[in-house]
């Protein structure tokens, strides 16, 4: 913390009008989680690189001093830490204690330490915010709650999500972000790789 106090670099802004901006951002996050694979738009924030606008808005909407956030390597920079701490007051922690974790899929590995809830309280589990280069509606077929017939979303891999589904109702939930685009994959979704 002491190092941060001497940093005079200009801090990137948060929401312009927090209650209103957060209401719209949450609605996008809710629609995404309730309809796995559907791509929503989430903008209005310009967080410091490498955080995408969509991931930045998610963090401002969902994180505060009551939540623990894990910044994966690549996102764990001085500038990002300062921005998150100033705007949310979230506790920065390790992967094993995190309520939210932010990073690329590769940087978020390994998945074992993350909390996946308990049989009594499956909600006490991590939400991964996975930064991607782009979101594409292909390669993986999604079925389950929130999906009328099927949806398509390209996932970074297959095995980890299949294993996560088998833990249901325990498991982790994912947001995928790229620029201002947002999609979600809750633990309840069944996935199948399509050639």
């Amino acid at each position: 913390m002491t190092g941060l106090a001497h940093n005079t670099e200009k801090l990137a802004a948060g929401f312009t009008d927090a209650p209103i901006d957060a209401a719209y951002a949450f609605r996008a996050a809710l629609h995404a989680m309730a309809r796995p694979g559907r791509i929503e738009t989430l903008s209005g924030v310009t967080p410091p690189a490498p955080v995408s606008p969509a991931a930045g808005a998610l963090i401002l909407t969902l994180c505060d001093p009551d939540t623990a956030l894990f910044l994966a390597p690549g996102h764990d920079t001085d500038t990002v830490r300062r921005w998150v701490l100033f705007h949310t007051g979230a506790r920065l922690t390790s992967a094993s204690e995190a309520d939210f974790a932010l990073g690329t899929w590769a940087a978020l590995q390994p998945l074992d330490p993350y909390r996946s809830g308990t049989p009594d309280y499956p909600d006490r589990s991590v939400t991964l915010i996975v930064e991607c280069d782009e979101l594409r509606a292909d390669r993986h077929r999604l079925t389950g709650p929130g999906i009328e017939t099927e949806a398509m979303l390209r996932l970074p891999e297959t095995r980890a999500f299949t294993a996560n589904r088998q833990l249901f109702p325990r498991g982790f939930d994912c947001y995928f972000t790229a620029g201002s685009s947002l999609a979600a994959l809750p633990r309840s979704t069944r996935i199948e790789e399509v050639a």
Binding site: D123, R187, S188
Partner: peptide, 22 residues
């Protein structure tokens, strides 16, 4: 806003685990 964030987090976990009381 802090209360809304807490409720919103509960809603999202509720959606992810259909029928489970958060």
């Amino acid at each position: 806003e802090q209360t809304k964030r807490m409720i919103r987090r509960a809603i999202l976990k509720g959606v992810a685990i259909p029928g489970y009381q958060v």
